[in-house]
Simulated scan of single mutants.
Amino acid sequence: MPDRLSAIRTRAALRSSARTSAELLLLLLTAAAALWLLGRMWPVLWPLVVALFLTTLTWPLTRFLRAHRWPATLAASVVTVLSLVVAAGVVALIAVPVSSQSGQLVDGVVDGIKQLREWAAGPPLNIDDAQISKGLDAAVERLQDSAGTTVSAVVTGVGTVINGVVTAVLAVFLMFFFLKDGPRFLPWLARQLPGKYAVHVPAVAERGWDTLGAFIRSQALVGLIDAVLIGIGLWLLDIPLVLPLSVLTFVSAFVPVIGALFAGFVAVLIALVSNGLTDALIVLAIIVGVQQLEGNVFQPMIQSRGLGLHAAVILLAVTLGGNLAGIVGSLLAVPAAALIAVVWNYVREQLTERDERPPRDGEADGGATVATV
């Protein structure tokens, strides 16, 4: 007799599937509402996020000073001022050599343009000066026609710069207060929360802080590897401004995608105007190779160890963050994924049932622990 479907079991499976689907839909709606709320609060949250990143970089020095009996305010002030001095030094390390060799670079750009025109005038393009002048006139005319759009873009760019300056200033002030009052935050938070929340929320916050520090340290290590490898390649090719380009590569590592593209473009441009097309192509090959190693080997391996995430999870998180929120999404995708993992692991620990039965014969002292999810 052939097997028949049980009507009772089928209805029970359908009810269970419907209930699970409704719960998943509710979770998705909650996540969408949370993302919408974050978007509305982003002008306030973004300086806070930047301040937290800066604090994770500067907290080890602050902790060292406070451990040697420095007052909290004095330690935070010294570290904040020292951070600003270091940032100014990095800018000077890039700007001073560039300005001292600006004449050489300008001459190289002019020579490069001349070589480009000579190449365009020969076969197979055979473009003469009259055609080039005509093309330039057409470009100027098109630029004049789009003057309104250009002005609008400039105004938008100025607004972006102003917002960036305001964000930086707020982030520095917030970093100072985090360095000064950070150790008092978790005890204060525990006093404000009722019941078990006074234990669980500070515990998750402390783990999240450790995870954020691991992310910043791993990102700095990846940037250092990029800067060293690319700097060695530039030095072997005798490209000018090796040190500023290496520093720029390290700093740009903290800005995913755009940072690497910008640093690579600057290095290739300098190689082109100073050493010619062949060396520029070699520099481009070096940068592409190092970036491939970074994205597919160094970054997933280093961050997976520091954050406790699998390399594939990191790659997927960066891809998803970039699609959802562009550059900022790529920057925050990995720490966000790591913080979600921290919360998930903590919840699993709290929901795990521990068997506290007395030990049986042959078992180790202290009993066995059975974990069920």
Rank of each mutant, 00 (worst) to 15 (best):
L61C: 09
L65P: 06
P124V: 09
T62D: 12
S102W: 14
M41W: 15
W36Q: 11
V96N: 06
G148S: 10
L74V: 12
Q101F: 01
E141I: 08
L84T: 02
P71R: 06
G148H: 10
V90D: 02
A88P: 06
W59H: 14
L54T: 00
P123F: 13
A92P: 03
G108V: 01
W59G: 06
V44L: 14
T56Y: 08
L84E: 04
L74N: 08
W70M: 08
P97S: 09
V98N: 03
P47E: 01
G112M: 05
G135E: 09
R69K: 10
A121L: 07
A92M: 03
F53I: 11
P60R: 02
L65A: 00
Q101P: 05
V91N: 05
V49P: 05
S102M: 12
I127P: 03
V140E: 10
A130V: 10
S83D: 04
A32T: 06
A72Y: 02
L37K: 02
A34D: 04
G135Y: 05
S77T: 15
L74F: 13
T80A: 00
W59N: 07
S83K: 01
P71I: 02
R63A: 15
A92K: 03
V50R: 08
W70V: 12
L82C: 12
D128L: 08
A87E: 04
A34R: 07
G89R: 00
V90E: 01
L93F: 03
V78F: 15
L125F: 14
G122K: 06
L125A: 13
V109I: 13
L125Q: 14
V50C: 12
A33W: 06
R117K: 11
I94E: 04
W119Q: 14
A76G: 00
L93M: 02
W36P: 04
A87F: 07
F64A: 12
R66E: 10
Q101I: 02
S146L: 14
A51C: 04
A33K: 05
G89V: 02
Q115D: 14
A72K: 03
L61V: 15
A32L: 03
V85M: 07
G39K: 11
F64P: 02
H68N: 14
R117I: 11
V91F: 01
G112F: 04
L37T: 12
T73I: 06
A76F: 00
L143D: 06
